[in-house]
Design a protein around this nucleic acid. Structure first.
Lengths: 219, 219
DNA sequence: CCCTTCTCTAGAATATTATTCTAGAATAGA
DNA sequence: TCTATTCTAGAATAATATTCTAGAGAAGGG
């Protein structure tokens, strides 16, 4: 799988023999990565359907044959990109949550992560928003379900004890998620339209306030 | 334009001569409407890119020539559908707001409308969510901007006085919108995945609570 | 009622673009 | 070194969006 490509530590393998080896060497970007990078750029700038395989071939400098060998279809490329991006977002979210101190810090910090991730990964964020699960190929859809399932488990582990402690309202998980991240997500959508970059970060405190006000135990 | 096709009152013109006229007559569904209906069904079931013009032709029983005469391209069909659906949603929202009694009723009622509209227009709702503005043709994009602009004006007219009266927090409009509808929107997204229909309506009270808690004046 | 003009319908012809296929190069393992 | 497997390559094919040409239907004017 390709899902965690970006998480690969820089130290993995010393210096694999490359035909034209040279000094000052940086990790060999596999063909697949080049394709994904090219596809992201193209999907983002002209949209999925307007981006042709030929465009992707030219930009990535990877042949048609290789592209199809690895991804199977155009949808396959989009699917891999989707899984890759979603994973990156989710890993960060869980990390923030686990590292947070108090409950309020956790709630606010998670919103902050959302905002920062979107600001720092605008193209990926746009892509994730536009291409929701349903148009994904079967394989990728399974990957996405796995990722989401995993995330929900982690969220729940963090959440339950705090409900028990009377710090947070008791809510079904999907509703919890919607109230927590919905506003940030909706604002992100707005901010990502148009090419000028109105930073989301400015709105972070307000969004965090709103989340906290809606989630803290009413008592 | 086709944007308000669905709003055409039933009484417009008595009984236009139809070649094979018959009793018990219902308004003549124009070719364009048939195309939009077919496209909605197909886009929803197999996705935009997998739905072919040929499929649309077969299901709508309108010829290729007519389809292209009216919509110009496949994207054009999607665009018209988008504008049409967005308009339907927005008109309802504004109506609810204007008819609401107090401020709290307004805030809650708008959330209610969102939830009910999604429940009652699942396919359209899914389509709107998947196909955000950026992949729209230029013409349609302008229409969408008009619609959104109009909505924001109406929202603002309702909102300003209530901020002045100290009933609602003061927020920039995009942020207001995000906090107000973000959670409902995010939950809708979740509820519309998978084909089984978990009604959104059940969550309405909770969503309304959350919106009200986040928007009412902190004082 | 006939002529003219404009819009709409139709489907065959064309162009674009995703996908498949065949063959050879690189790589890994024995 | 030999063998098997994976990867690369681009030409050939197939699917599908779009254009084109011709005619049918409605609208208006005399």
């Amino acid at each position: 799988m390709d899902g965690k490509a970006n998480a690969r530590p820089a130290s993995v393998s010393g210096a694999p023999k490359v035909s034209g080896g040279r000094a000052n060497w940086s990790p060999p970007p596999k063909q697949g990565d080049k394709v994904l990078a090219a596809a992201l750029k193209l999907f983002d700038s002209v949209g999925y359907s307007a981006a042709t395989i030929e465009d992707i071939r030219l930009r990535s400098e990877v042949s048609i044959g290789s592209i199809y060998h690895r991804f199977g279809s155009k949808e396959g490329i989009a699917g891999a990109l989707y899984v890759d991006s979603l994973g990156s977002y989710q890993r960060g979210l869980v990390r923030v949550l686990l590292e947070s101190d108090g409950t309020e810090q956790g709630v606010r910090g998670a919103v902050g992560h959302h905002v920062r991730w979107v600001d720092g990964n605008r193209a990926r964020a746009r892509f994730l928003m536009r291409r929701r699960e349903t148009e994904l190929a079967q394989v990728n859809r399974r990957d996405v379900e796995l990722l989401n399932g995993e995330l929900f488990i982690q969220l729940e582990e963090w959440y339950r004890p705090r409900v028990a402690a009377g710090e947070l309202r008791e809510l079904p998980l999907p509703l919890l998620y919607a109230i927590w991240f919905g506003p940030a997500q909706e604002l992100a959508r707005y901010a990502l339209e148009g090419s000028k970059p109105p930073r989301l970060a400015d709105a972070e405190p307000t969004l965090a306030d709103a989340a906290w006000a809606a989630l803290r135990s009413a008592g």
